[in-house]
């Protein structure tokens, strides 16, 4: 992807903004992002912290807003229903209020996670053993469902029937687990 400011360099910063349910995406290269405000001092600058970065992501907003100004538009307040932390607050302190914040700010969070973790936004490590059992099952079911679609598309109906039976088996296991209060 090319930077939308200079149309020259590859975009390194991906930033999504949601205003009144309207989604806007920005893709900038490091240089242009820096010119937008010298907040992206990555690479071990002394005193750099996540808070600067998050605050930086927020500071970048006004420059983009210029293109679309509507005095009657009020910014929708994004808030976690469990702990009432707002997205603005999160940006300021750089810390979430509770586990539910991850869901509440999910859409805003993905580009931030990618930025922080070299482009990764999905967990690929340990799964807790006790609560993890059903997660393993559900992951398997998802994969099988995908395979089922593929075999139907390829008109391999015998294979599809086998996969369907497997899914049923896992589904019943999952139900038993959930009902068993695990």
């Amino acid at each position: 992807m090319i930077c939308q400011e200079c149309n020259q360099r590859p975009a390194a910063l991906h930033f999504t903004k949601i205003l009144n349910g309207e989604k806007a995406e920005f893709h900038l290269c490091d240089k242009c992002a820096q010119e937008k405000g010298d907040m992206f001092m990555l690479g071990g600058a002394p005193g750099f912290s996540i808070h600067n970065l998050l605050a930086g992501l927020l500071n970048i907003e006004p420059t983009f807003q210029k293109t679309k100004q509507d005095p009657f538009q009020q910014e929708e307040i994004l808030q976690c229903v469990k702990c009432s932390m707002t997205f603005q607050q999160f940006i300021k302190v750089g810390r979430f209020g509770c586990a539910h914040c991850y869901q509440a700010f999910e859409e805003q969070l993905i580009p931030i996670l990618k930025r922080l973790h070299s482009g990764n936004s999905a967990h690929n490590g340990k799964i807790p053993t006790r609560i993890g059992g059903s997660i393993h099952l559900r992951k398997n079911i998802e994969e099988l469902k995908q395979k089922l679609k593929e075999s139907i598309a390829k008109e391999e109906f015998e294979r599809a029937a086998e996969i369907r039976d497997e899914i049923r088996l896992l589904d019943s296991k999952l139900k038993a687990k959930d009902e068993g209060g695990e």
Partner: peptide
């Protein structure tokens, strides 16, 4: 534990999330 299938172990600061 606070754990999410997609992003793993949930932490206060997003720099620690995942593992």
């Amino acid at each position: 534990y606070a754990f999410d299938e997609k992003v793993g172990y949930l932490t206060s600061c997003p720099t620690n999330v995942g593992t």
